[in-house]
C-alpha cells in the first residue's frame, strides 16, 4: 500500500465552512486589494479632491481657503489673459508636433519595416532618444541651441547661415521645443507603425504590384488604408502626450521667453507650486482633464464607427 496523501482523513475533516464560490471571490479581492487601495488613495480620492479645490480660493502660503464656486473657472475662461495665451501655446505645440511626429514616424517605419543589412542599427538609433530621460535630452539640446556659442548655430555658420538665438525668441523657441520633442519621441510611433506594417499581409501589395501599381499607388491604395486604425490610435496617443509635456519645456525654456512656450501642464505646475494658487491651478487641472477625456472619447467613438 502506497502512502496515501490525497485521501488522508485529516485533510477531509478540514472541509471549510466557506463555499467554493465565496472562497474564489475572497481570493480575487485579496489579489486586487493593493491595486484597489492604491487606486482609492492616490487616484480616486485626489480626483474628487481636485474638484473641490477648484471651487475654492486657496492660498497655500496664508493657509486660507474660501468657497468661490465657479469663480476660478470664470477667471481662467474670461478674465485671465494668460489662460488663452497658454491654451494657444498648447494648441500650437500639439498641432506642430503631431503631424511632424506622425509623418516622420511613418516615413521611418516605411523605410525600416522590411529587413535589410543595417536595419537594426537604424531602428536602434531612432529609438534611442525614447529611452533617454527627457531631462538629459532637454539639457543637451538647450546646450546645443544656445545663441552664438551653440553648436547648432556654429555648424550653420560654416555653411553661411546665421542661425537665430533659438531659445530666446518666442516663435523660434516654440519651433525648437517642438522639433526636439519630435526627435525624442518619434521612435515610439515608428515602432508602433512598424508593427502595424508588418501585420499587413504581404499578398496585398504583391497582388497590387502584379497589377502594375507603382510604389506610390501601392502606398496610397493598399498600405495607407490598412494603417488607418493604427494611425488613429497613434494620433490620439501623441496628441494626449503633447498636452502632458512638462519636463522637456521646463528644462529647455522654463516656459519662456515671454511665456512663449508656456503650455497647459507647465501653467498648472506654475500656478500650484510656484504661485501657490491652489484653487485656480485645480480648476486648470480639471480643464486639462476634460481635454484629455474628450480626445479619448473621440478615439473610442471613431474606433467604434465602421471600418476602424
Amino acid at each position: 500500500m502506497k502512502p496515501s496523501t490525497v485521501n488522508d482523513p485529516r485533510r477531509t475533516e478540514r472541509a471549510p465552512g466557506l463555499s467554493l464560490k465565496m472562497r474564489g471571490m475572497l481570493t480575487a479581492w485579496l489579489f486586487v486589494s493593493p491595486t484597489v487601495a492604491g487606486f482609492m488613495v492616490f487616484f480616486l480620492g485626489p480626483l474628487i479632491a481636485v474638484v473641490f479645490y477648484s471651487a475654492t480660493e486657496w492660498n497655500m502660503l496664508s493657509q486660507t481657503s474660501t468657497f468661490v464656486g465657479w469663480a476660478n473657472y470664470q477667471d481662467a475662461l474670461t478674465r485671465n489673459p494668460d489662460f488663452w495665451h497658454v491654451m494657444r501655446n498648447s494648441v500650437v505645440f500639439a498641432l506642430g508636433l503631431v503631424p511632424m511626429n506622425i509623418a516622420l514616424a511613418l516615413a521611418l517605419a516605411m523605410s525600416l519595416y522590411r529587413p535589410f543589412r543595417g536595419v537594426v542599427v537604424f531602428r536602434t538609433i531612432f529609438f534611442a532618444p525614447v529611452v533617454t530621460s527627457a531631462v538629459a535630452w532637454a539639457i543637451v539640446w538647450k546646450f546645443l541651441l544656445q545663441g552664438e556659442a551653440g553648436a547648432v548655430n556654429q555648424i550653420l555658420a560654416t555653411v553661411g547661415i546665421d542661425g537665430p538665438n533659438w531659445l530666446r525668441e518666442p516663435n523660434w523657441a516654440m519651433f525648437a521645443v517642438i522639433v526636439t520633442r519630435v526627435i525624442k519621441m518619434v521612435g515610439l510611433n515608428m515602432i508602433l507603425y512598424i508593427a502595424a506594417l508588418q501585420a499587413i499581409p504581404r499578398d496585398f501589395s504583391e497582388a497590387a504590384r502584379l497589377e502594375g501599381a507603382t510604389n506610390w499607388q501601392i502606398f496610397r491604395m493598399v498600405i495607407w488604408p490598412n494603417l488607418a486604425p493604427a494611425t488613429l490610435i497613434i494620433v490620439v496617443i501623441t496628441m494626449i502626450g503633447s498636452f502632458k509635456v512638462f519636463d522637456h519645456i521646463y528644462l529647455m525654456t522654463g516656459g519662456g521667453p515671454e511665456n512663449g512656450t508656456l503650455v497647459l501642464a507647465f501653467y498648472i505646475y506654475q500656478q500650484a507650486f510656484e504661485f501657490f494658487n491652489v484653487g485656480y491651478a485645480s480648476a486648470l487641472a480639471i480643464i486639462m482633464f476634460f481635454i484629455v477625456l474628450a480626445l479619448t472619447l473621440v478615439q473610442i467613438l471613431l474606433r467604434r464607427r465602421g471600418s476602424l
Binding site: V6, T12, P16
Partner: peptide
Amino acid sequence: DRLVNDVQAARRG
C-alpha cells in the same frame, strides 16, 4: 461516502 460539494479540487481525491 463523503459529501464534497465544498471541498477544494485538490482534496477530493
